[in-house]
């Protein structure tokens, strides 16, 4: 199994492969969005403009299925950002991987630009056991719990801020519905929502990538299986991106929509 190049600065570990992957994913999403809105035309839309209009309509319908139509417009950009970024991030780790190995003759710590990835003791220990220390430099950014937890934290802050500012009385009252004795259960529900959002996305994409490295151990005979698995992973990536977006919208609508029934 591959290690990830983690650099410790000031006591916090920075995973270099995640940082590279997030940057690439962000650049691809930005370029895609910028190119789609160049030379907009009503009579003669380009294929990219057509595709992006379909995405906008899809996201709008998704949001409209959770909250009343006049509120749905405000969240289209949030929905589009989430679904495009997460889908492109999920696809990133599938086509190829970049792995570097520490050679047998290397003694002393493994460093990148002067910052240490593996200490000298770990290198010596790996060489004694006869194993190669291999570092993976490319993966899906969402295969890292820190990235998905970051996305889930954004959603968490957004949901509670919107609930507090737009719908204050009902948002605060819903913690005590249906009976005040449900308060600890409601608090637990509030805490587990972002937790499951982060863990769902991370576990799906991480499990897919681990299985890719396992299939690669088969060598040449694993190629058809790898093709099938990569196809399935594209499907899973799309489903998880859609699920993250629609659950975000459901949580926002639960916090902000003034329900008439109570």
């Amino acid at each position: 199994m591959y290690e990830f190049p983690v650099v410790h600065i000031g006591g916090i570990g920075f995973d270099l492969s995640s940082i590279i992957a997030i940057t690439v994913s962000f650049v691809i999403t930005l370029v895609l969005a910028l190119f789609a809105v160049r030379n907009l035309s009503v009579d003669n839309p380009s294929k990219l403009q057509n595709f992006m209009e379909w995405v906008v309509e899809f996201v709008h319908n998704t949001i409209a299925s959770t909250m009343p139509l006049e509120k749905a417009k405000r969240y289209i950009s949030l929905g589009m950002t989430l679904i495009m970024f997460i889908f492109i991030s999920n696809l990133l780790g599938l086509p190829f991987g970049i792995v570097t190995e520490v050679s047998e003759s290397h003694h002393g710590p493994v460093t990148v630009a002067g910052l240490e990835i593996a200490s000298a003791d770990e290198v010596e220990k790996a060489h004694e056991d006869g194993k190669h220390l291999a570092y993976a430099w490319w993966k899906s950014p969402t295969a890292d719990l820190s990235v998905t937890a970051g996305l889930a934290s954004i959603v968490f802050v957004l949901v509670h801020y919107l609930g507090l500012t737009q719908n204050t009385r009902h948002y605060l009252k819903h913690y005590f519905k249906p009976y005040p004795i449900f308060f600890p259960i409601n608090i637990l529900e509030t805490l587990t929502k972002p937790l499951t959002l982060a863990l769902r996305l991370f576990a799906n994409i991480f499990a897919g990538e681990v299985l890719i490295s396992t299939i690669l151990l088969l060598g040449v005979f694993g190629i058809p299986l790898l093709g099938i698995w990569q196809g399935f992973s594209i499907f899973v990536g799309a489903i998880q991106a859609f699920l993250f977006t629609i659950l975000t919208m459901v949580y926002i609508s639960q916090a902000t929509v003034h329900e008439e029934g109570h």
Partner: peptide, 15 residues
Amino acid sequence: IGVGIVEVVPIIGVV
């Protein structure tokens, strides 16, 4: 959506 929600805990178990 239902499949996504039901599969969370088994997939956490897999990880």
